[in-house]
Amino acid sequence: MVKMKYFNIALLHYSCPPLVGGVEEVVRQQANLFHRYYNNVKIFAGMGGTFSQDYPIEINPLLSSRNEKIITSHKKAIEKKDVKPLQNLSNKIYKYLKKSLEGFDVLIAHNVLTMHYNLPLTYALHWLADENFLPIISWGHDSPYFYDDYPQHLREEPYKILKQFNPKMHYVVISNYRKKLFYNLYGRKGRFTVIPNGIDPITFFKLDSQTVRLIKEQHLFDSDFIMVQPSRLHPRKNIELSIRVLKALKDKGKNARLLVTGAYDPHEATAKEYYRKLKSLAKTLDVEKDVLLLAEYKFKSGEHLSPDRITMRDLYLIA
Rank of each mutant, 00 (worst) to 15 (best):
I9V: 15
A10V: 04
H13D: 07
Y14W: 10
S15M: 10
S15K: 10
S15V: 11
P18D: 09
G21W: 06
V23E: 00
V23C: 03
E25N: 12
R28L: 03
L33I: 13
N39M: 06
A45Y: 00
G48T: 02
G48F: 06
G49V: 06
G49Q: 11
T50F: 05
F51I: 02
F51S: 08
S52K: 05
Q53T: 14
D54W: 02
S65E: 11
N67A: 04
E68A: 12
I70E: 06
I70W: 08
E79I: 10
K80L: 13
D82E: 12
K84Q: 12
P85E: 02
N88W: 08
L89D: 03
L97F: 11
K98L: 01
S100P: 06
L101S: 05
G103M: 11
F104N: 11
F104Y: 14
F104M: 08
L107K: 03
A109K: 02
H110W: 02
Y117C: 03
Y117N: 01
P120G: 01
L125Y: 05
W127D: 12
N132C: 12
W139G: 02
G140K: 02
P144G: 03
Y145D: 06
F146D: 02
Y147A: 07
Y150N: 04
Q152Y: 13
Q152H: 12
E156R: 07
L162S: 07
L162D: 01
Y171L: 00
S175Q: 07
S175L: 10
R178E: 15
K180S: 14
L181C: 01
N184I: 09
L185S: 05
R188A: 00
F192A: 01
I195F: 06
P196M: 02
G198N: 00
D200Q: 01
F205V: 09
K206Y: 06
L207N: 02
V212Q: 08
V212M: 11
K216Y: 09
K216H: 10
K216T: 13
D222N: 15
D224E: 04
D224R: 01
D224K: 09
F225K: 11
S231T: 15
K237C: 03
E240C: 03
V245F: 12
L246N: 04
L249A: 15
K250R: 15
D251Q: 12
K254L: 15
A256P: 03
L259Q: 03
Y264E: 08
P266K: 07
P266L: 08
E268P: 06
A271N: 15
K272M: 15
Y274P: 08
Y274N: 06
Y275G: 03
L278Q: 12
K279N: 14
S280M: 08
S280V: 09
L281A: 11
K283D: 13
T284N: 14
L285D: 00
D286R: 13
V287R: 11
E288P: 06
E288W: 13
K298H: 15
P307T: 10
L315K: 10
L315P: 02
